[in-house]
Design a protein around this nucleic acid. Structure first.
Lengths: 212, 212
DNA sequence: ACCTGAACACCGTTCAAGT
DNA sequence: ACCTGAACACCGTTCAAGT
């Protein structure tokens, strides 16, 4: 699979252990989610628990190594899609791919979202990379006038994460419906209905909300 | 606080322990989320761990007892809002309240969503109650023609849960932005833009997604 | 330079013994 | 009828000792 981030050379047995841990972690995380027992991972890889900690000092470090390839793929895909004739369809296609790649393990969406907020997290750079990739397509679609101008790259990331979380929890069709609705909400609107245009101004979420 | 679900009478000391457990659980869950140590809860309440298990055989049972009041409130609120002059605003107001009530503990949205899927869960009835409450306002708004007819009560519940999860993870303003976008996606649309009306038909989320 | 596994702290859950 | 807390199984994390 991959190589440790900065490292140049490793002893042969260390390299073997590293690869084996990554491969078995992929299986274990897929089976049981991001909270799977690290002892279980080490057991699967046939190494002592200390060896796992030697290579991956935190669970996040392990998750980061597992996600590296997927994050790169999303970046590449975004740059490819910049050449798609429809800016709108390009954005939507990429968003679907991003949801797919960030919901491969139960709990991944939550890990990513919290890493997005925490700058010191091992996964924070990965989140930033996804944000930047999405921003390319978002900006293009906004310049084409098909996506509302007040949506930010952070909004897009949050939306993708929320749908990824949803698709971890419910059947694929249900998550897909929500994604469709949400993407519709991103479209450039222009006078939808002849209803009283009451404004949904961002405000408190909680509240007594004067009734009628 | 509340009363045990079916039970009629309890010994005085048992009732005291029950109430104390519930009160301390509320604090502990608020502090540390739904995965807080149950031993911590028992310790706070000044009872042995076995006493906690005697009253609440599972973590979900405890969560269910904590949520009972909030779920009832949401039902009442929905019925009140049926008299609100604007069906759209009524729905949106209730949705915001629902998000607020289902994101009071870190991890609550995930518990609720998984209980929505699992019919044997202790929290499943609570989820159903929320779905039914939302359905009242959704149906009314659809009959008024302001909300798209293809949105279901399950869609609304999923949307609320997804935003509740989001607001557990990120600052309130960010979650509020996403909610606004999502609610816009629920509006009855009628020809938004003079763009080629490429159709986002529900399909796979993953996929090679033929590029351009 | 890397690996091992015992050690420590902590938790979920059950259940025999008490009152 | 209810409470207690020891017992068991399991896990996260560290680190002295090995090779």
């Amino acid at each position: 699979m991959g190589m440790p981030a900065g490292q140049r050379r490793m002893r042969a047995d260390a390299r073997r252990n590293y690869e084996r841990l990554l491969a078995e972690a992929e299986i274990a995380f897929t089976e049981q989610g991001t909270e799977v027992s690290l002892e279980y991972v080490a057991r699967r890889a046939g190494v002592a628990i200390g060896t796992l900690y030697g290579h991956f000092p935190t669970r996040q470090a392990l998750l980061e190594a597992l996600m590296r390839g997927r994050v790169e793929t999303l970046g590449t895909r975004a740059r490819e899609l910049l050449h798609h004739p429809s800016p709108e369809e390009a954005l939507y296609t990429w968003a679907r791919a991003a949801v797919a790649h960030t919901s491969v393990y139960q709990g991944l969406a939550t890990s990513l979202m919290s890493s997005f907020e925490a700058e010191d997290s091992a996964l924070h750079a990965a989140c930033q990379a996804v944000v930047s990739a999405g921003e390319l397509l978002l900006t293009r679609a906004q310049q084409a006038g098909v996506i509302r101008a007040d949506a930010s790259a952070a909004d897009l990331f949050t939306l993708i994460s929320a749908i990824a979380w949803t698709s971890e929890q419910v059947p694929a069709e249900q998550a897909e419906r929500l994604l469709s609705f949400a993407l519709d909400g991103l479209r450039q609107t222009q006078a939808t209905l002849p209803t009283s245009g009451f404004s949904r101004s961002p405000g408190r979420v909680i509240g007594p909300a004067s009734d009628g």
